[in-house]
Design a protein around this nucleic acid. Sequence first.
DNA 1: CCTTCTCGGTGACAAAGTCACTGACAGGCC
DNA 2: GGCCTGTCAGTGACTTTGTCACCGAGAAGG
Lengths: 214, 214
Amino acid sequence: MTAVSEKEFTTVFPAFKKAPAGTVQQILSASSRSAFQAYSRIYAEGDACTAIAFVLSGEIRVFKIGKTGREITLYEIGPGETCILNASCILAKRSYPAHAMTIAAGEMLLVPSALFRRLVEESESMRDFVFSLLSLRLTQVMELVEEIAFGKMDERLMEYLIERSEKGALAATHQKIANDLGTSREVVSRLLKDFERQGSVALARNEITLLGTE
Amino acid sequence: MTAVSEKEFTTVFPAFKKAPAGTVQQILSASSRSAFQAYSRIYAEGDACTAIAFVLSGEIRVFKIGKTGREITLYEIGPGETCILNASCILAKRSYPAHAMTIAAGEMLLVPSALFRRLVEESESMRDFVFSLLSLRLTQVMELVEEIAFGKMDERLMEYLIERSEKGALAATHQKIANDLGTSREVVSRLLKDFERQGSVALARNEITLLGTE
DNA sequence: CCTTCTCGGTGACAAAGTCACTGACAGGCC
DNA sequence: GGCCTGTCAGTGACTTTGTCACCGAGAAGG
């Protein structure tokens, strides 16, 4: 496992390009690079936070689980972002208020809490970075509230399909889609079947194809 | 309109008790005290932010409105808190992502954006205050997502009644309750009527009385 | 006493979530 | 090949929640 170079770091986290050289060096020398597989658990609700993760590659999904076992995705963390909830619970001394799992393999840089706290105090780049990400998440989660509270499931599903599809196709089980949208598999299956009957999608096991609106 | 004294400020915002004297003085001398009535509009979705409000007394409700006119309360801001979304849009240069209105008359201290930005850089007290509030809101809104996505309306309503009631009674129209919970008046009316039939509440115009579970 | 407005109640229907069960199919194994 | 097993998807029946349309009770003001 090679160390992370300054160049690599600032490429993924451009907010630190303008930071004094010492700042990035401090981060890199005190932190460890860590690889993760897809579909592994990162945090469960209530966990304490001892380090903060800066994602270099891969993807992490932050979600809630209800008593009935249903899930809903709050947001996803990609390269160039941190698990800001980590930051939040480090700085405000709370425990982790959700679950997090990886959905695509990758690597992250684990920055110890103590160093992170100090950098937020000393480095303007770090402060700006953390504030704007925290603020982005708050806005995103507020928009999610709006969608769940007022949106209709068929519209939310269609938007989801369009966003997630590549070249008009999407490989996913109905259960995974339901977990992202916060509904049940049956509802997703029924709505997709309706879409199919209307001729807007084609369905196969583990695969949904969008048929441009004709 | 008298100026806000240092003592008054640190009583309402204890986080600044440990701050160097200059910090609080800077805030007070550059800011203006402003009174507000109950039920007046503060921000609409998309507004730009030019100052940040530190609430001295009264209460502000932050909410979203759906296309159908339904509303849902995201959280409420009381004395000793700021409209952190202000902070968020000042620091991250976004526009305001929700609506805000007052629900109880009171006063606030309007701190100009430029000063606020500078204080976040220079003052540890201010930074801690803002971080912990931002983090609190994110956690609250995430819990709201969980409730809406997985909770049942009757349970949410009963919790709401218990939380908001004073001495077992609550003065509110069904419409207001619906606006807080993100549902429609009819649903609230129906569920309250069910509660009444079960003997757990008594209903009158503009008044709901809880009848301890006997 | 009458008008007007707000508040709440209700029935009928639509949308979404739950439960229980079925069938279809892929992959491994004999 | 045929068989077994586990995952995935489809469906009917029912409950809960949201929507629409409409009514009636009661407060407030002339």
